[in-house]
Amino acid sequence: MSRSLAYHLLDVFTDRRFSGNPLAVVEDADGVDASTLQAVAREFNLSETVFLLAPRDPVMTARIRIFTPTQELPFAGHPTIGAAALLAETRGLDALTRNGLVVALESDVGALRCDALRGRSGVTYAELRFPGTPRPLGPTPSREALAAALTLAPADIGFEADCGAHVPSVYAAGPAFVFVPVASRAALDRARPVAGAFGAVLGALPGAYLYTPETIDPAAAIHARMFAHGLGFEEDPATGAAAVAFAAVAQAFERPEEGEHELFIEQGHAMGRPSRITLRLWIAEGALAGVAIGGQAVRVGEGRLRI
Rank of each mutant, 00 (worst) to 15 (best):
G77V: 14
L73V: 08
G20T: 12
Q71G: 05
T14G: 03
P79Y: 03
G92C: 10
A224Y: 05
A287Q: 13
G119K: 12
I64P: 09
P274W: 06
D57P: 02
E27C: 01
L210H: 15
L188S: 05
L86A: 02
M1V: 09
A176Q: 00
L305E: 12
E27I: 00
S47W: 11
G20V: 12
A250F: 03
A247K: 00
A145Q: 14
I307H: 00
T90L: 10
A224W: 05
L305H: 06
V244I: 14
V178T: 15
Q267F: 00
D57H: 06
R273W: 05
R16V: 04
N21Y: 04
D162E: 11
R276G: 13
A241M: 08
R255C: 11
D156P: 11
E260G: 15
V180I: 10
A165V: 14
Q296K: 15
N45Y: 12
A204F: 04
E144D: 11
A221Y: 08
E43K: 09
G77M: 14
F253H: 09
G268N: 05
D156N: 10
T133V: 14
H223D: 08
P218M: 02
V32Y: 07
A145P: 15
R3A: 05
Q251F: 04
H8M: 10
L9Q: 02
V249G: 03
G31K: 12
A270S: 09
R42H: 07
T70D: 11
D94A: 13
V167E: 10
S169R: 13
L117V: 03
A173Y: 02
G132L: 14
R98D: 04
P237T: 07
A172F: 08
L231C: 07
L105Y: 02
S47I: 04
D217P: 00
A6Q: 09
R225A: 12
E72W: 01
A228Q: 08
V298N: 07
R273H: 04
G272E: 15
A173G: 05
H8I: 11
R16E: 05
A126L: 01
I283S: 12
V26H: 03
A200D: 13
Q71C: 10
E214P: 15
V59T: 04
I283V: 15
I66C: 01
L93C: 02
A173C: 05
A147P: 03
E258C: 13
D189V: 07
T80Y: 02
T90Y: 09
G31N: 09
R225Y: 10
L231Q: 03
S142Y: 07
S121C: 12
F130Y: 15
A172P: 12
P134K: 14
A85D: 03
S169C: 12
L288A: 14
I216A: 02
V25P: 01
D162Y: 01
G82N: 08
Q296V: 14
Q38D: 00
A176D: 04
F179S: 03
P274M: 06
L86W: 02
V102P: 09
R98W: 00
